[in-house]
Design a protein around this nucleic acid. Sequence first.
DNA 1: AAAATTCTCAACCGCTCCACG
DNA 2: GCGTGGAGCGGTTGAGAATTT
Length: 304
Amino acid sequence: MGRKPCCSKEEGLNRGAWTAIEDKILIDFIKAHGEGKWRSIPKAAGLKRCGKSCRLRWLNYLRPDIKRGNITRDEEDLIIRLHKLLGNRWSLIAGRLPGRTDNEIKNYWNTVLSKRAQVKEFNHINKNEEKQRIINCSRKAPTGSGVIHAKAERCTEVFISPKQQIMIGKDDNDIVHTVPSTDAKLVHETAVESESRDGSFTLLSSKEENPSSKFSMDFGIGEISISEALASDDLTQLSDFDLCDMNSTVIYEYGTNDCGQALLPPQLMVENWSGNDCVELEANLDSDFGFLAAFLESTEDLTF
DNA sequence: AAAATTCTCAACCGCTCCACG
DNA sequence: GCGTGGAGCGGTTGAGAATTT
């Protein structure tokens, strides 16, 4: 006995493209009664659609604040940079592009930008053939790009800067564990749980059968990581974020991504973010993280 | 001009998260 | 603590439009 699906293929429900009449009914109803209670809207409004379909139609097409027209150059640049940092978190990306919907951005990425990115990556790989060869010695397919996940959940290895004590994760009881600087080293996760030499912390535990099938990376800011701050509502936690401390606080977790591509070792991963040469590493690090910090702290639209 | 192919994007589907009883 | 239902998210599909052959 499973749960009744939201949009079961009930008889009499319209499917496919919405008609102008259906649009008008939905618009009038929401103008009169407001958004929400999507499940009850079709019945109340007299629409032969499921609630989910109504919600989607409203959010992606009928909402009055939807911006029509082509994605501008600035928007495109913003999408690319946000995607670099956030991955396929379309709703999060859309939240920073007023008037654009997650669906629209997702479509734009899948049809336009991903192809462009592939070409760019191909060129970049050729350009850095020797660099890749070196990485191949330690990684099977080093073509992954760094993506910040809202929650640092899984990893196979963690590179920890030796400069100071760093938070690396929470255990099942939600207790944050840190690695003392003396223990800073490349940690290899061979089991679901792993302890440091003095047994003082639990490595990010994974309940996945195959912990190496996914990856995440996270960046510490004192007691909280960016991803945690991102996942929480309180972005003021980021106020202490000091770019000057970046090199001493960054935590890299690297393994393989969803496609089975291996992530690069920390230095090269960051290089690949910017697509620039080693000598510009620090500047680009500042630039990308400055952008991220601005993104996280901004309540206004970002301008570039 | 017609057929074939490619592209675009609205809509659907299945899943997870979260609030609530 | 557990089950249920609503909302939201990201991946995928497919119809129609645009382009190429």
